[in-house]
Computed example of a mutant assay.
Amino acid sequence: MFFVLSKLLQYLVMPLLWVLALLVFGLISRNKAKSRKAFLMATGLLLFFSNTLISNEVWLAWEPKPVLMKDVALYDAAIVLTGVTRHEKSPHDRTHYSEGSERILDAIQLYKLGKIKKIIITGGSGSLVSVANTEAQDLRQTALYAGVPTADILLEEKSRNTRENAQFTKELLQAHPELKKLLLITSAFHMRRAQGCFTKANVAFDAFPADFQTQDRRYTLDDVLIPNVDALKNWSKILHEWLGFVTYKLLGYA
Rank of each mutant, 00 (worst) to 15 (best):
T150N: 09
D152H: 15
D152W: 02
D152Y: 03
L155I: 04
L155V: 06
E156N: 10
E156Y: 12
E156T: 06
K158T: 08
K158C: 00
S159C: 03
S159N: 07
S159M: 04
N161G: 03
N161Q: 05
N161V: 02
N161W: 06
T162R: 10
R163G: 14
R163Q: 14
E164A: 05
N165Q: 07
Q167G: 00
Q167E: 15
F168G: 02
F168R: 03
F168N: 13
T169L: 09
T169R: 12
E171T: 14
E171V: 15
E171A: 15
L172D: 09
L173E: 09
L173M: 07
L173W: 11
L173Q: 08
A175C: 00
A175Q: 15
H176D: 07
H176V: 02
P177H: 08
P177S: 04
P177L: 04
P177Q: 06
E178V: 01
L179C: 02
K180Q: 15
K180Y: 02
K181T: 04
L182A: 06
L182F: 08
L183S: 05
L183Y: 08
L184F: 12
L184T: 08
L184M: 11
L184N: 11
I185V: 10
I185K: 02
T186W: 10
T186N: 14
A188L: 03
A188R: 05
A188D: 05
F189S: 12
F189Q: 08
H190Q: 13
H190D: 10
H190G: 05
M191T: 04
M191N: 07
M191Y: 09
R192Q: 15
R192H: 15
R193A: 02
R193S: 02
A194Y: 13
A194Q: 13
A194R: 13
A194C: 13
Q195L: 00
Q195S: 12
G196Q: 13
C197D: 13
C197S: 15
C197F: 03
C197E: 14
C197Y: 03
C197L: 01
T199D: 12
T199Y: 07
T199R: 15
K200P: 03
K200M: 06
K200A: 14
K200G: 01
A201R: 09
N202L: 04
V203P: 11
V203L: 08
V203H: 10
V203Y: 11
A204K: 13
F205W: 09
F205H: 12
D206T: 10
D206N: 14
D206Q: 15
D206K: 13
A207L: 12
F208T: 02
P209F: 10
D211W: 06
D211I: 01
F212A: 02
F212W: 06
